Computed example of a mutant assay.
Amino acid sequence: MPYWRLSGYYFFYFASLGALVPYWGLYLQDRGFDALAIGQLLAILYATKIVAPLVWGQLADRSGRRMPLVRLAALLSVVLFGLIFIGEGFWATALAMALFSFFWNASLPQLEAVTFNHLRRRPTRYALVRVWGSVGFVLVVVALGMALHAQSFAILPWWVLALLLGIWLTSLMIPDSAPVRAQDAEPRIGALLRRPAVLAFFTTCLLMQLAHGIYYAFYSIHLEANGYGTDAVGGLWALGVVAEVAIFLVMHRLLERFGARRVLLWSLALAVVRWLVIGAWVELLWLQVLAQLLHAATFATFHAAAIHWVHHAFPGRTQGRGQALYSALSFGAGGAAGSLIGGLLWEDAGALATFGGAALASALAWVLAWGWVDRPSSALLRHA
Rank of each mutant, 00 (worst) to 15 (best):
A191N: 09
R382P: 01
L6A: 05
Y126F: 15
R194T: 09
A60K: 02
S101C: 13
Q292E: 13
P53V: 07
R382M: 11
L364N: 02
F11Y: 08
A324V: 08
F33M: 11
C205S: 14
V55D: 01
Q110Y: 02
S77C: 07
A280S: 04
T318A: 14
I50A: 13
A15G: 11
P376E: 09
R31M: 13
A358S: 11
I189T: 05
G332L: 12
A304Y: 05
F299N: 09
W159C: 14
H383N: 12
Y10R: 09
L294H: 08
T115Y: 06
S107E: 12
L352W: 05
Q110H: 10
L249C: 04
I44T: 11
V142M: 12
G8P: 01
W281N: 06
W24M: 14
F331C: 03
C205E: 04
A243P: 02
V135W: 04
F258L: 15
N117Y: 04
L293T: 12
E283S: 14
Q58Y: 13
A182F: 10
V138Q: 07
V138Y: 06
L255Y: 06
G240N: 03
R121G: 14
W372I: 01
G133H: 05
A73Y: 00
W104L: 14
A182V: 03
F102S: 14
G190R: 10
R195W: 05
N226F: 13
A15C: 07
A211T: 06
T124K: 09
D348G: 03
H311I: 00
A147N: 04
Q209K: 10
E224H: 06
W56Y: 15
F137D: 10
S107P: 00
V70F: 08
F355N: 03
M146R: 14
D348Y: 11
F331P: 00
V272W: 08
M67P: 01
Y46I: 06
W237E: 05
A300M: 08
V160E: 01
T203C: 14
P315N: 09
R125W: 06
